[in-house]
Simulated scan of single mutants.
Amino acid sequence: MKTFVAAAAAAVTALTVTVPLPAPGDRRPDTYVVSREPGVRPEGIAVTPTGTMYVTSVSDGAVYRGHVRERELRPFLPAGTDGRTRAAGVRLDRQGRIFVAGWDTGALFGYAPDGTLLARRAAAGAALNDLAITDDAVYVTDSATGVLWRADLVGTEIGELTPWLSPADFPAVPGFLNGIVATADGRLAFAADQGTGAPGSERLYRVDLHRRTATVVAVAGGQLGADGLLLEGNRLYGVVNFPDGQDGWLFAVNLALLAPDGRTAQVVRQSRPAPLAQSPTTIARDADRLLWVNSQLNAAAPAPPFTVTEVPGLC
Protein backbone atom coordinates (compact mmCIF):
# COMPACT_ATOMS: atom_id res chain seq x y z
CA MET A 1 0.00 0.00 0.00
CA LYS A 2 1.39 3.33 -1.08
CA THR A 3 1.86 6.79 0.27
CA PHE A 4 3.82 9.51 -1.49
CA VAL A 5 7.34 10.37 -0.41
CA ALA A 6 8.54 13.76 -1.57
CA ALA A 7 12.21 13.01 -2.17
CA ALA A 8 14.20 14.00 -5.24
CA ALA A 9 15.60 11.25 -7.45
CA ALA A 10 19.35 10.90 -7.03
CA ALA A 11 22.03 10.24 -9.60
CA VAL A 12 23.19 6.64 -9.45
CA THR A 13 26.13 4.73 -10.82
CA ALA A 14 26.45 1.43 -12.64
CA LEU A 15 26.86 -1.89 -10.88
CA THR A 16 27.36 -5.41 -12.14
CA VAL A 17 25.05 -7.79 -10.27
CA THR A 18 25.14 -11.59 -10.45
CA VAL A 19 21.63 -13.01 -10.70
CA PRO A 20 20.22 -16.49 -11.33
CA LEU A 21 19.78 -17.54 -14.95
CA PRO A 22 16.58 -19.05 -16.35
CA ALA A 23 16.55 -22.64 -17.54
CA PRO A 24 17.66 -23.16 -21.16
CA GLY A 25 14.75 -22.65 -23.54
CA ASP A 26 12.66 -21.08 -20.78
CA ARG A 27 10.15 -18.64 -22.26
CA ARG A 28 8.33 -16.36 -19.87
CA PRO A 29 5.88 -13.54 -20.60
CA ASP A 30 6.99 -9.98 -19.89
CA THR A 31 3.43 -9.09 -18.81
CA TYR A 32 1.11 -11.12 -16.56
CA VAL A 33 -2.61 -10.50 -16.30
CA VAL A 34 -3.72 -10.70 -12.68
CA SER A 35 -7.35 -9.95 -13.48
CA ARG A 36 -9.52 -8.59 -16.28
CA GLU A 37 -12.25 -7.60 -13.83
CA PRO A 38 -12.73 -3.94 -12.83
CA GLY A 39 -11.58 -2.57 -9.48
CA VAL A 40 -9.11 -5.31 -8.50
CA ARG A 41 -6.06 -3.08 -7.81
CA PRO A 42 -3.32 -5.65 -7.11
CA GLU A 43 -0.78 -4.86 -4.40
CA GLY A 44 1.45 -7.65 -3.04
CA ILE A 45 3.49 -10.29 -4.85
CA ALA A 46 5.47 -13.41 -3.99
CA VAL A 47 7.23 -15.76 -6.41
CA THR A 48 8.48 -19.15 -5.23
CA PRO A 49 11.80 -20.68 -6.41
CA THR A 50 9.78 -23.06 -8.61
CA GLY A 51 7.97 -20.17 -10.32
CA THR A 52 4.56 -20.09 -8.62
CA MET A 53 3.32 -16.51 -8.35
CA TYR A 54 0.88 -15.08 -5.80
CA VAL A 55 -0.63 -11.59 -6.14
CA THR A 56 -3.05 -9.90 -3.72
CA SER A 57 -5.86 -7.40 -4.27
CA VAL A 58 -6.07 -4.53 -1.83
CA SER A 59 -9.57 -3.69 -3.07
CA ASP A 60 -11.36 -6.92 -2.19
CA GLY A 61 -8.89 -9.29 -0.51
CA ALA A 62 -8.62 -11.81 -3.33
CA VAL A 63 -5.35 -13.69 -3.81
CA TYR A 64 -4.46 -14.78 -7.34
CA ARG A 65 -2.07 -17.57 -8.30
CA GLY A 66 -0.25 -18.46 -11.48
CA HIS A 67 3.12 -19.51 -12.87
CA VAL A 68 5.89 -17.44 -14.42
CA ARG A 69 5.57 -19.40 -17.68
CA GLU A 70 1.84 -18.62 -18.00
CA ARG A 71 0.45 -15.19 -18.85
CA GLU A 72 -2.84 -15.40 -16.94
CA LEU A 73 -3.26 -15.73 -13.17
CA ARG A 74 -6.37 -17.25 -11.64
CA PRO A 75 -8.27 -16.65 -8.37
CA PHE A 76 -6.79 -18.82 -5.62
CA LEU A 77 -8.33 -17.37 -2.45
CA PRO A 78 -11.66 -15.73 -3.38
CA ALA A 79 -12.37 -12.18 -2.29
CA GLY A 80 -14.00 -11.84 1.12
CA THR A 81 -13.47 -15.40 2.34
CA ASP A 82 -12.40 -15.78 5.98
CA GLY A 83 -13.13 -12.06 6.47
CA ARG A 84 -10.29 -11.22 4.08
CA THR A 85 -11.85 -8.20 2.37
CA ARG A 86 -8.46 -6.51 1.87
CA ALA A 87 -5.04 -7.95 1.12
CA ALA A 88 -1.65 -6.23 0.94
CA GLY A 89 1.66 -8.03 1.53
CA VAL A 90 2.04 -11.75 0.85
CA ARG A 91 4.93 -14.08 1.80
CA LEU A 92 5.57 -17.82 1.98
CA ASP A 93 7.55 -19.58 4.68
CA ARG A 94 9.78 -22.64 4.29
CA GLN A 95 6.82 -24.94 4.88
CA GLY A 96 5.03 -23.41 1.92
CA ARG A 97 2.46 -21.69 4.12
CA ILE A 98 1.05 -18.48 2.63
CA PHE A 99 0.79 -15.43 4.88
CA VAL A 100 -1.34 -12.45 3.85
CA ALA A 101 -1.43 -9.04 5.51
CA GLY A 102 -5.04 -7.90 5.59
CA TRP A 103 -4.48 -4.12 5.50
CA ASP A 104 -7.28 -2.28 7.35
CA THR A 105 -9.08 -5.49 8.28
CA GLY A 106 -6.42 -5.59 11.00
CA ALA A 107 -5.81 -9.29 10.45
CA LEU A 108 -2.98 -11.58 9.43
CA PHE A 109 -4.07 -14.70 7.55
CA GLY A 110 -2.09 -17.94 7.34
CA TYR A 111 -2.96 -20.59 4.74
CA ALA A 112 -1.78 -24.07 3.88
CA PRO A 113 -0.39 -24.57 0.36
CA ASP A 114 -3.79 -25.88 -0.76
CA GLY A 115 -5.56 -22.72 0.47
CA THR A 116 -6.93 -24.11 3.75
CA LEU A 117 -7.11 -21.41 6.42
CA LEU A 118 -4.71 -22.24 9.25
CA ALA A 119 -4.95 -19.07 11.32
CA ARG A 120 -6.51 -15.63 11.42
CA ARG A 121 -4.69 -13.36 13.83
CA ALA A 122 -6.09 -9.94 14.76
CA ALA A 123 -4.33 -6.66 15.50
CA ALA A 124 -6.92 -4.15 16.69
CA GLY A 125 -6.89 -0.81 14.87
CA ALA A 126 -4.03 -1.83 12.59
CA ALA A 127 -3.45 -1.43 8.87
CA LEU A 128 -1.24 -4.47 8.29
CA ASN A 129 0.83 -3.72 5.22
CA ASP A 130 3.84 -5.95 4.65
CA LEU A 131 5.51 -8.89 6.35
CA ALA A 132 8.83 -10.66 6.78
CA ILE A 133 9.22 -14.27 7.87
CA THR A 134 12.06 -15.88 9.82
CA ASP A 135 12.37 -19.45 11.08
CA ASP A 136 10.59 -18.59 14.34
CA ALA A 137 8.31 -15.62 13.63
CA VAL A 138 6.43 -13.44 11.20
CA TYR A 139 6.86 -9.67 11.54
CA VAL A 140 4.19 -7.32 10.16
CA THR A 141 4.32 -3.56 9.58
CA ASP A 142 1.38 -1.45 10.66
CA SER A 143 0.99 1.69 8.56
CA ALA A 144 -1.80 3.10 10.73
CA THR A 145 -0.12 3.12 14.14
CA GLY A 146 3.61 2.64 13.49
CA VAL A 147 3.71 -0.63 15.45
CA LEU A 148 5.78 -3.60 14.29
CA TRP A 149 3.78 -6.72 15.13
CA ARG A 150 5.08 -10.25 15.66
CA ALA A 151 3.53 -13.72 15.68
CA ASP A 152 5.56 -16.72 16.84
CA LEU A 153 6.00 -19.67 14.49
CA VAL A 154 6.58 -22.89 16.42
CA GLY A 155 6.37 -26.05 14.35
CA THR A 156 2.97 -25.99 12.71
CA GLU A 157 1.56 -23.44 15.17
CA ILE A 158 1.03 -19.77 14.33
CA GLY A 159 0.94 -17.61 17.44
CA GLU A 160 -1.14 -14.56 18.21
CA LEU A 161 -0.10 -11.16 16.89
CA THR A 162 1.50 -9.05 19.61
CA PRO A 163 2.96 -5.52 19.48
CA TRP A 164 6.72 -6.13 19.25
CA LEU A 165 8.05 -2.61 18.66
CA SER A 166 5.96 0.42 19.55
CA PRO A 167 6.25 3.77 17.74
CA ALA A 168 8.29 5.05 20.69
CA ASP A 169 10.83 2.24 20.17
CA PHE A 170 11.87 3.75 16.84
CA PRO A 171 14.32 6.69 16.70
CA ALA A 172 11.43 8.76 15.31
CA VAL A 173 7.73 7.95 15.36
CA PRO A 174 7.04 6.28 11.99
CA GLY A 175 4.80 8.20 9.62
CA PHE A 176 3.89 5.23 7.40
CA LEU A 177 5.63 1.92 8.03
CA ASN A 178 5.60 -0.12 4.85
CA GLY A 179 8.04 -2.62 3.29
CA ILE A 180 9.98 -5.06 5.45
CA VAL A 181 12.52 -7.82 4.80
CA ALA A 182 14.63 -10.07 7.02
CA THR A 183 18.14 -11.43 6.58
CA ALA A 184 18.53 -15.13 5.81
CA ASP A 185 19.95 -15.82 9.28
CA GLY A 186 16.99 -14.15 10.98
CA ARG A 187 19.22 -11.73 12.87
CA LEU A 188 18.16 -8.46 11.25
CA ALA A 189 15.18 -6.94 9.50
CA PHE A 190 15.00 -3.76 7.45
CA ALA A 191 11.76 -1.80 7.63
CA ALA A 192 10.89 1.17 5.44
CA ASP A 193 9.06 4.23 6.71
CA GLN A 194 7.62 6.36 3.91
CA GLY A 195 7.19 9.17 6.39
CA THR A 196 4.65 11.95 6.36
CA GLY A 197 5.11 12.96 2.72
CA ALA A 198 7.34 15.89 3.69
CA PRO A 199 10.80 15.91 2.06
CA GLY A 200 13.32 13.97 4.15
CA SER A 201 10.74 12.33 6.42
CA GLU A 202 11.26 8.89 4.86
CA ARG A 203 13.65 6.48 6.60
CA LEU A 204 15.00 2.96 6.51
CA TYR A 205 15.30 1.20 9.86
CA ARG A 206 17.69 -1.56 10.86
CA VAL A 207 15.81 -3.80 13.29
CA ASP A 208 17.90 -6.11 15.47
CA LEU A 209 15.61 -9.09 15.94
CA HIS A 210 17.66 -10.49 18.81
CA ARG A 211 18.05 -7.27 20.79
CA ARG A 212 14.62 -5.90 19.86
CA THR A 213 15.95 -2.49 18.81
CA ALA A 214 15.54 -0.21 15.81
CA THR A 215 18.11 2.25 14.45
CA VAL A 216 18.22 4.44 11.35
CA VAL A 217 20.22 3.18 8.36
CA ALA A 218 22.34 5.98 6.90
CA VAL A 219 21.34 5.89 3.22
CA ALA A 220 23.47 7.74 0.66
CA GLY A 221 22.85 8.36 -3.03
CA GLY A 222 19.06 8.10 -2.96
CA GLN A 223 16.13 7.03 -0.81
CA LEU A 224 14.88 3.73 0.56
CA GLY A 225 11.71 4.94 2.21
CA ALA A 226 10.09 2.29 0.08
CA ASP A 227 6.89 0.40 -0.49
CA GLY A 228 7.98 -3.13 -1.43
CA LEU A 229 11.48 -4.28 -0.41
CA LEU A 230 13.57 -7.21 -1.64
CA LEU A 231 16.78 -8.34 0.06
CA GLU A 232 19.37 -10.54 -1.66
CA GLY A 233 22.57 -10.83 0.35
CA ASN A 234 23.81 -7.26 0.71
CA ARG A 235 21.63 -5.98 -2.16
CA LEU A 236 18.48 -4.19 -1.05
CA TYR A 237 15.86 -3.22 -3.63
CA GLY A 238 13.02 -0.82 -2.86
CA VAL A 239 10.07 0.56 -4.84
CA VAL A 240 10.20 4.34 -4.35
CA ASN A 241 8.31 7.35 -5.66
CA PHE A 242 9.49 10.90 -6.28
CA PRO A 243 8.38 14.14 -7.97
CA ASP A 244 8.82 14.29 -11.74
CA GLY A 245 9.56 18.02 -11.73
CA GLN A 246 6.27 18.79 -13.50
CA ASP A 247 3.85 18.57 -10.56
CA GLY A 248 3.55 14.82 -11.00
CA TRP A 249 5.12 11.66 -9.62
CA LEU A 250 7.26 8.82 -10.90
CA PHE A 251 7.92 5.35 -9.50
CA ALA A 252 11.13 3.33 -9.73
CA VAL A 253 13.14 0.62 -8.01
CA ASN A 254 16.29 1.72 -6.21
CA LEU A 255 19.09 -0.79 -5.65
CA ALA A 256 21.34 -0.19 -2.65
CA LEU A 257 24.36 -2.02 -1.26
CA LEU A 258 24.27 -2.59 2.50
CA ALA A 259 27.35 -2.46 4.67
CA PRO A 260 28.20 -5.77 6.40
CA ASP A 261 26.71 -4.52 9.67
CA GLY A 262 23.59 -3.17 7.94
CA ARG A 263 24.06 0.30 9.40
CA THR A 264 24.74 2.12 6.14
CA ALA A 265 23.53 1.74 2.56
CA GLN A 266 24.56 3.23 -0.76
CA VAL A 267 22.04 3.53 -3.60
CA VAL A 268 23.96 2.49 -6.72
CA ARG A 269 21.34 2.04 -9.42
CA GLN A 270 17.79 2.95 -10.32
CA SER A 271 15.38 1.33 -12.76
CA ARG A 272 13.68 3.23 -15.52
CA PRO A 273 10.65 5.03 -14.05
CA ALA A 274 6.95 4.23 -14.27
CA PRO A 275 4.18 6.85 -14.32
CA LEU A 276 1.65 7.69 -11.65
CA ALA A 277 -1.13 5.85 -13.46
CA GLN A 278 0.85 2.59 -13.22
CA SER A 279 1.77 3.07 -9.53
CA PRO A 280 3.93 -0.03 -8.97
CA THR A 281 3.94 -1.19 -5.37
CA THR A 282 5.89 -4.35 -4.60
CA ILE A 283 8.57 -6.50 -6.24
CA ALA A 284 9.70 -10.11 -6.43
CA ARG A 285 12.59 -11.98 -8.00
CA ASP A 286 12.06 -14.37 -10.91
CA ALA A 287 15.45 -15.85 -11.92
CA ASP A 288 17.29 -13.17 -13.92
CA ARG A 289 14.66 -10.44 -13.64
CA LEU A 290 12.53 -8.46 -11.23
CA LEU A 291 8.75 -8.26 -11.41
CA TRP A 292 6.58 -5.49 -10.00
CA VAL A 293 2.86 -5.09 -9.39
CA ASN A 294 1.06 -2.36 -11.34
CA SER A 295 -1.49 -1.40 -8.71
CA GLN A 296 -3.06 1.64 -10.42
CA LEU A 297 -3.74 2.86 -6.88
CA ASN A 298 -3.08 6.45 -7.91
CA ALA A 299 -4.61 6.26 -11.38
CA ALA A 300 -7.43 8.71 -12.10
CA ALA A 301 -9.55 5.85 -13.45
CA PRO A 302 -8.12 2.37 -12.66
CA ALA A 303 -9.01 0.02 -15.48
CA PRO A 304 -8.43 -3.64 -16.31
CA PRO A 305 -6.46 -5.55 -17.16
CA PHE A 306 -4.49 -5.34 -13.92
CA THR A 307 -0.98 -6.59 -14.48
CA VAL A 308 2.45 -7.61 -13.24
CA THR A 309 5.37 -6.65 -15.48
CA GLU A 310 9.15 -6.75 -15.59
CA VAL A 311 10.97 -3.91 -13.84
CA PRO A 312 12.60 -1.99 -16.70
CA GLY A 313 16.34 -1.40 -16.71
CA LEU A 314 17.20 -3.30 -13.53
CA CYS A 315 17.69 -6.93 -12.60
Rank of each mutant, 00 (worst) to 15 (best):
S271G: 14
Y54E: 01
A265K: 02
G51K: 02
N241Q: 03
T81V: 13
V55R: 06
A14H: 10
P312D: 13
L177T: 05
T213N: 07
T134D: 10
G89F: 02
P171W: 04
Q223S: 13
V240K: 04
V34P: 01
A300Q: 01
L188C: 12
M53L: 05
P167T: 13
D114F: 00
D135H: 06
G125Q: 10
T48E: 01
L148W: 06
G110H: 02
A7E: 14
L229S: 05
A107H: 01
D247F: 10
Y111F: 14
I283Y: 03
S59C: 14
G179W: 01
D30T: 12
A191R: 07
Y237S: 08
R74M: 15
D93W: 04
T156W: 04
L250I: 10
R211Y: 10
A62M: 10
T309A: 13
T215W: 03
Q270T: 15
L15T: 15
R36I: 14
G44A: 05
G313L: 03
A87G: 02
T31S: 13
R187M: 07
L257F: 08
A9C: 04
D288T: 11
V173I: 11
G248R: 06
T134F: 00
S143A: 15
L297F: 15
N294T: 12
L177N: 05
A303C: 15
Y205M: 08
Q95P: 00
W103Y: 14
A259D: 15
R41A: 15
R65G: 02
A189D: 09
G159I: 05
R269K: 14
V34C: 10
P24L: 14
R71S: 12
V268S: 00
L230E: 12
A226F: 03
P174F: 05
L314E: 05
A62Q: 10
L236S: 02
R41I: 15
G179L: 04
R65P: 01
M53A: 09
L314Y: 05
T282V: 12
G233A: 08
T3S: 08
T52S: 13
L128V: 13
G175A: 11
D114R: 10
F176Y: 08
A300K: 09
G110M: 08
G233E: 03
G51N: 06
I180K: 02
D93A: 03
T141V: 00
P302G: 15
P20R: 07
V12H: 10
A301N: 15
L148G: 03
E70K: 11
T50C: 11
G175Y: 05
K2I: 08
G106K: 08
L161V: 04
S271D: 05
N241Y: 01
P22A: 14
L73H: 02
V34G: 10
L290T: 04
A214G: 01
V219D: 00
A23N: 14
Y237M: 11
R285D: 06
N241D: 09
A62V: 08
A11D: 02
V173W: 07
G225E: 03
R97T: 04
L231P: 00
A299P: 15
T3Q: 00
V58M: 14
T56S: 08
A259K: 13
A300T: 10
A62D: 06
G221P: 13
A124K: 11
A252H: 11
T50Y: 10
R120T: 14
V311M: 09
E202C: 05
R65Y: 12
T264R: 12
I283W: 01
L314N: 07
T156K: 08
H210L: 15
P49T: 03
A198N: 11
T52I: 09
R269I: 06
V34F: 09
L236E: 02
T213Y: 04
